[in-house]
Design a protein around this nucleic acid. Structure first.
Lengths: 138, 138
DNA sequence: TGGTAATTGAAAAGGTTTTTCAGTAAGCTC
DNA sequence: GAGCTTACTGAAAAACCTTTTCAATTACCA
């Protein structure tokens, strides 16, 4: 997803496009790894010192509400945010360096069907995180 | 998993078995749903008023370290703890009432193989959470 | 170019989790 | 069992993380 797509979505949903929000979105897009609010704030402040930490939180909440970012739980019980690519996807996470790779076609629909009939649940969505070591850390 | 198994594991790892820890473990075992530290504290205090909130946190950290409980991220960005049944398992979570059902035989090993060869990752474990509505809430 | 309502940063407030500390108790040794 | 040692406890304080408040500012529509 590119920054102008995200910005368009923001505007379309009635939010104003401020320079602070643009800086935050671009910084988030520029990072391959999930960023905690604090880490994102540190990075943004280098590019645009006018951005306050509160605005980082507020912007992440908006992006999260709009489904434009998703939350990754890291090892230390801290939530990291990464930009969500279009459509459903899952994560492959390096336990060592924290790198996150998205993937699709996870194909758990068969499992969903089986569980639905066994438990009576109506299954709507899922989240699959695979943990391991990336090529660099392995 | 039964409370005496957990208690044995605690003792074997060099931790003392105190009445407070026993109360916390039994309360956690008695709940089918994941409990936040605060919710667990409320429940424990009914049974055993000598247990302080700090001890709940400390005990959860120990159980987590020993792999005896696992963390479930709930909708509101709050962490809930549930006792981990022996071996690997995944979760089926009701978005409405928060009920968590464990299941096994999730069979993502084929997917793991494919991703390993595509990305070069060494995959060690995974976590699969399915979200939907339980029979009561549907 | 105004006007208006949302947005901003800073400070304060609100929550959650951890640390500190003096007193207590589990569990080992005899 | 009794004594000893070391870990554990609750309460308060501290440390974090996140949200709310508020006056000033600014995006964006007409």
């Amino acid at each position: 997803m590119r920054s102008d797509e995200i910005i368009r979505r923001l505007r379309r949903s009635g939010y104003k496009v401020t320079p602070q929000r643009v800086s935050i979105i671009k910084t988030l897009l520029g990072s391959r790894e999930a960023l905690t609010p604090a880490a994102l704030f540190q990075k943004v402040r280098l590019v645009d010192p006018t951005v306050g930490e509160v605005t980082v939180y507020r912007t992440l909440n908006i992006l999260s509400e709009l489904g434009l970012v998703c939350v990754v739980s890291t090892a230390e019980n801290v939530n990291g945010y990464i930009v969500r690519p279009g459509g459903h996807h899952d994560h492959l996470i390096c336990s060592e360096c924290g790198k996150v790779v998205d993937f699709r076609n996870c194909n758990v629909s068969e499992l969903e069907k089986r569980l639905a009939s066994e438990t009576g649940f109506v299954i709507k969505e899922h989240r699959l995180d695979l943990y391991g070591l990336c090529p660099q850390c392995a």
